[in-house]
Simulated assay, not measured.
Amino acid sequence: MRFRHPDGSLVHLAYCTNVHPAEDLDGVIAQLSRYARPVRERLGAPRLGVGLWLARRVADTLITDRAELVRLRKALDHNGLEVVTLNGFPYEGFQDAVVKHNVYHPDWTTSERVRYTLDLARVLTLLLPEDVDGGSVSTLPLAWRAPWTPQQVAMADRRRDRLNRELAGLAAATGRTIRVGFEPEPGCVVETTGQAVRHLAGQGVCLDACHLAVAFEDPAEAVDRLVAAGSPIVKLQASCALELDGGADREALRAFAEPRFLHQTRAGGGAAADDLDAALDRLPADEPWRVHFHVPLHAAPEPPLRSTRHVLEDALAALFGGERALTPHVEVETYTWEVLPDPPDGPDALADGIAAELAWTADRLTALGLKREHA
C-alpha cells in the first residue's frame, strides 16, 4: 500500500514474506497467490506491497535466468502486488525446524554474504514498479557478537566497501538506487543504534521496532541519533516484542520458549540471555523483561504478558510525525505466526492475521497525517 506524507514523499507499506517457507522460485510464486493476494483482497487494496524474502537458491535462479525473473514479475502483476524492498537477512532455511544461530551465517566477513546482497540489489532493480526509482534491502548487523576479532572487523569493512562501490555502480548503470540497511539486533555485533553509529560509519540502517524494544531503546532518541550521524534509515520493520512487568509470573512466557527461532531476552536492569529458556532459568524476576519474539501487531497477548506495541507506535511517530518522512519503507515482519502458542489454523487464518496487522499499521500512518493512495 502507498501513502503520501505531508512533505509530498511516497511511503510504501508492505508485509514480509519470510513468514512463508519457500526455498525455490516455484514456492515463492505459489505463496503470492496462496497468501499475498488474499491479504490484498481482505484489505480492499488495488495493489499491495510485499517485502520478498528470496533465499540464496532463488536469487541464483533470478540472476542467471532472465526468463524466470520475468515469470516472477508477471506473477506479482497478476496478483496485484508490488515490490520495493527485500529482506536479505536470512540466507536460507529460515522456516527450517531449527534456525536459531544459523540465521547469522554467512556473516559480513564472507564473500558469500556480500555477493548475495548484491545479487538481491540487482534483482530488485528489475522488480521495482515502473514509477519507483529506489528500493531497499535489509541485512544482518555484521555478525553474531562472538567471535569478533580485529581481523574480522577489517574483513567486514572491506566487504562493506565493496558493497558500497558496487551499489553506486548499479545506480549509475540502471538509474535506480538500492540502499542496504544493516539491522541492529540483540546479541549481534551491532545490537543498538548507538553501536550502529560507532561501527557502521554512516551506513544505511534498517530499524526493527521489536529489536529497539528488547534493547530498551527510546525510538525518538534512536531516530535522532541516526539522523545526527548521517546514517540513512532505509526501512522500518514494524514488529512487536513480548513484555512482562517485574514481579509478574514468568511461567506465562514458557509457552513461547520454542525450538525454531532465537528469542533473546533482556531485563530492565541490563541482564541478558541469548534465548528465552535460559532467561527463565537465571534472569532476575523482579525486573521487567522484553523478549525477542515477534508477536502480532494488532492483538494483545494474554495477561500478564503485553506487547511492546507502544514502542512501535513511538517509532512510527518519530519517523513520520515530523515535517518530513525519515524513511520511505515500512515492512510488517511477524515471521513467528506458526510458532505462536496458538498458531493460525490454515492459510485463510494466516491471511486474516496479516491483513489485520497491515490494517492496524495503515491506521497509525493515517493518524500521523499520511494520506492513503488508492491507485
Results as ranks from 00 to 15, higher is better:
residue 157 D to W: 12
residue 120 L to Y: 00
residue 129 P to T: 02
residue 138 S to F: 07
residue 149 T to Y: 08
residue 143 A to L: 04
residue 132 V to W: 04
residue 124 L to A: 12
residue 140 L to T: 07
residue 156 A to I: 03
residue 123 V to I: 14
residue 148 W to K: 06
residue 154 A to V: 08
residue 123 V to N: 05
residue 122 R to N: 11
residue 156 A to Q: 05
residue 153 V to R: 12
residue 156 A to T: 05
residue 141 P to E: 06
residue 133 D to H: 15
residue 130 E to Q: 14
residue 148 W to R: 05
residue 121 A to D: 01
residue 120 L to A: 03
residue 121 A to C: 07
residue 123 V to F: 01
residue 158 R to K: 11
residue 152 Q to I: 14
residue 124 L to N: 06
residue 137 V to R: 00
residue 121 A to Q: 00
residue 137 V to Y: 01
residue 136 S to T: 14
residue 129 P to C: 00
residue 148 W to G: 06
residue 133 D to T: 13
residue 155 M to V: 14
residue 152 Q to N: 10
residue 126 L to H: 11
residue 132 V to Y: 01
residue 157 D to H: 13
residue 120 L to H: 01
residue 151 Q to P: 00
residue 148 W to F: 12
residue 154 A to M: 11
residue 135 G to Q: 03
residue 127 L to M: 04
residue 148 W to S: 05
residue 157 D to R: 13
residue 144 W to Y: 14
residue 124 L to Q: 11
residue 142 L to A: 05
residue 147 P to I: 03
residue 123 V to H: 03
residue 125 T to W: 03
residue 124 L to Y: 03
residue 131 D to I: 03
residue 158 R to I: 02
residue 153 V to C: 05
residue 122 R to K: 11
residue 134 G to M: 14
residue 140 L to I: 13
residue 157 D to F: 10
residue 159 R to G: 05
residue 146 A to G: 01
residue 140 L to P: 00
residue 128 L to C: 06
residue 150 P to H: 08
residue 127 L to E: 04
residue 142 L to D: 02
residue 146 A to E: 12
residue 142 L to M: 03
residue 158 R to G: 11
residue 142 L to W: 00
residue 156 A to Y: 00
residue 136 S to G: 11
residue 135 G to K: 00
residue 138 S to W: 05
residue 122 R to D: 12
residue 130 E to W: 00
residue 141 P to K: 00
residue 136 S to P: 03
residue 158 R to T: 10
residue 134 G to Y: 14
residue 128 L to K: 06
residue 157 D to I: 11
residue 132 V to T: 13
residue 150 P to L: 07
residue 138 S to V: 09
residue 155 M to T: 15
residue 145 R to W: 09
residue 145 R to E: 15
residue 144 W to I: 15
residue 154 A to S: 07
residue 150 P to R: 09
residue 146 A to I: 02
residue 153 V to L: 05
residue 141 P to T: 12
residue 151 Q to M: 15
